[in-house]
Nucleic acid binder design. Sequence first.
DNA 1: AGCTATTGTTCATATATAAAAACAGTATTA
DNA 2: TAATACTGTTTTTATATATGAACAATAGCT
Lengths: 302, 302
Amino acid sequence: MSRWRGFEELVEVINSGSFSAAAKVLGVSKGHVSQQISRLEDRLDTRLLHRTTRKISLTETGAIYYQQCRQVVEDLEAAERAIGALQHEVKGRLRIAAPHLLGEVMLVPAIANFMKRNPELTIDLHLSGRRVDLIEEHFDLAIQVGARKDINVVNRALAPTKFYVVASPDYLMDHVAPVRPADLKQHNCLLFMDAGFSKPWKFRGTGSTVKISVNSNWHSNSGYALRSAATQGLGLAYLPDYYLKDDLASGKLVTVLHGWQSIDREIVAIYQHKAHLSAKLRLFTEFLEEYFAREIQPLQAV
Amino acid sequence: MSRWRGFEELVEVINSGSFSAAAKVLGVSKGHVSQQISRLEDRLDTRLLHRTTRKISLTETGAIYYQQCRQVVEDLEAAERAIGALQHEVKGRLRIAAPHLLGEVMLVPAIANFMKRNPELTIDLHLSGRRVDLIEEHFDLAIQVGARKDINVVNRALAPTKFYVVASPDYLMDHVAPVRPADLKQHNCLLFMDAGFSKPWKFRGTGSTVKISVNSNWHSNSGYALRSAATQGLGLAYLPDYYLKDDLASGKLVTVLHGWQSIDREIVAIYQHKAHLSAKLRLFTEFLEEYFAREIQPLQAV
DNA sequence: AGCTATTGTTCATATATAAAAACAGTATTA
DNA sequence: TAATACTGTTTTTATATATGAACAATAGCT
């Protein structure tokens, strides 16, 4: 039972002018209002209202208490209104975590687009190689490639993405283009490496799946640096489609290993709990889904 | 059920840092706290807390709501403290109604005495011939001679008082002093009359009680005027002991009808409800009781 | 790694609360 | 002046609420 029961009944009795009217407003029985006021008086060990069957009048003590409670009721009403507004409008802060590459290439233009429609929104975009802790670091949303196993979060697939092995035309003038994954061993591969670890390159051919640990004398935790190194002919790079689109179109890079596709992966939005999703978060993820579907064109078959 | 249930649980969960700790502080089960927060979230249609088994963290929405609720809790606590102080100290306003005579003669010095001990008190003394409506006119206390029949008020006897028939020695030189109530018919009686009505004079002899409607060509609603008229030999007056003390001692007036006593009456304090008596009201009536016992000396037997 | 202590949630049950009707009292109205 | 309609309170009964144990999950400890 609440520590402060009865204060709203008191306020409403005064505002309405009678127990009966207050009961009607509050949607309870008048007997209940009577009981609540009585208990409040017992608890405060003072009489708050003088009452005859017809007239209600505040005690001096009651008047002082009423003033404060009235303020409290107004504050609580204001608080609920504020929440309601926040809940149903796209406003406030949206704190997003993402890897550098995805964030810079995909999210920055997407966010720009979304904010044009929702100018009251504040964005806090945090790019890093880590998988952030949503709770600890107060992120509303994390965007990454591949889902999380954490059962406390929702993984929402936004778009599929593929990785391609690419090289510059220059490089391919000097080296024989690989046609099977095993051929990669003969090449210098530009590796994405973070915190000392790199992931193997995976491919799916007709019926078989291959995982290759490649040779490399060049590592970076920056996708931009990897792509740049590849265009300058330093070796082969394994990069996602959304990051290659322009350079493939312009011919600065070309794909190799035709017939071998990388394993499909998903760009995922990750957030806490499906229930009670705030409007801003719900609408932003919906927007991202549409935006990615529109912007990520499947590359011409390789 | 309250319209704002759960806000105190939310505040305490944040203040304590966990559901369990909050439950301990609030003196309820942790299951209950959990349920309250859940309902609050359902009602607001938003998530207020991120929770894992070990960590609690406010949502952006939750943080906003928490700030407001925290303020509300502090305000409610402050309100209760204020009431407590008002309830247990003699301070604030004490609004008293009394008849002119009693008020001027007895209450003014009594109040002066009481206020010396309780300087934080404010007194509002309203003198009139009417029986005031405590509720309607916001009186804490009415002092009068004789109890009220109203079942909604407390009649607290402060002191007994007697009425005496008095005359000036001059008057008695020219007239035969009455010895029985019936003799009053032969005299001019100075009548207390308010709103066109006067009360009969009552007497108790040895074994019998007499009620007399006297003859009068002089009326006033002022006890002071009555007494003054009597000292100037205009006739007989029927006045209370506390108002005659000085004039009887100085010999300006003398009592008649020896052997016939007026009906004893009570000076009464009248207030709303015995329960929840404020400290100032309780202490003031107690003080009046003592003060009257000390100050109203029984007149020498008549 | 495995164990322990502690977390928040869920569920059946005991308790407390709110409703509805009966009650007592008082302004209003005819 | 009597009838009436409405007041706040009381009481019984139906409903809702809080509990406490069982549960699932996790951080810290050894």
